[in-house]
Amino acid sequence: MAMTVTRPGPAAKTAPAGEPRRARNFRSRVLVPYSMLAPGIVLFLVFMAAPIVYTLVLSFQKKKVSGLGLGKGSQSQVFAGLDNYISSLTDPEFTASVLRVLLYGVILIPLMLGFALLFALLLDSRRTRAGNFSRTAIFLPYAVPAVISSLLWGFLYLPGVSPFHFLARQMGLELPSLLDPNLVTFAICNIALWGGVGFNMIVMYTSLKAVPSEIYEAAKLDGCSEIQTALRIKIPIIAPSLVMTALFSMIATLQVFAEPTTLRPLANSLSTSWSPLMLVYRDAFTRNDVFSAAATSIVIAAATFLISFLFLRIVQKRAFGQEN
């Protein structure tokens, strides 16, 4: 696979003795680092920058005569101005999917980060036993891809399979199915919680481990209880980690796709436009309308950036730019 990258052989050679000083300087100051960065820069331009630009271009176009070709039918593309954006933003299906995902995020993120923090603090507490077992077990779902975790939980939600429904039936009760239209958001939240809590716990726990113990010593001398230490010292110290996990969780929430897509065969209540990304997928590949799909993509990306920047501004940009 190393054929995708080239060794910057010539540029890295030491300059011949007779070469002018300026040329040598240029070679070591500019040519060498840039040739070593070339694989990264080229891949970034081709697979990140160009797609973004391409999406922008597509989002301002529309088909004049409805052709069949996705990419090659370019002869019928005309400038559309903001039409795609307007129809995307006023599409009730889009608004509905955004509201669903907002509700999903509002339920999921506090629960996931709250449990992650609780577990991390408990792991860090010296009075907790079986820490290795619990840490491994809680982190394990991170190894299970979203498709497979959705598949497992999807079966577990079926009233004929679920042990909770079984127990309820034994007691003469009938529980509502989590796959019902009203409850399916909670069903998806649970899958994401299961898959995400361990990873966030590990990030927070490693931050806690890095705190020098002298701080706790001082706190103890001052008569801090363990809960006070956790609330007043540990949580503020690992705040950068909390900011980072919150940010990444928000970005992931906006992009939820695999879980609802996998649940669909088991839950009729999930529409093909349940999340914004599912809507984008449906527009692009089922309806062959890449132009509105592009506009919707840009709206989602812009919203992601806006939320990220607002969030980082609110927490005073503590998450990034301090690594030195």
């Binding site: 697979f47 391409y54 999406t55 970005i251 992009q255 692009a284 890449v290 799909a293 989602i300 992601t304």
Partner: peptide, 14 residues
Amino acid sequence: LVPGVILAIPQYLM
């Protein structure tokens, strides 16, 4: 910060 999945459709077209 770029939501990676959003790149998938233009990547497909390219």
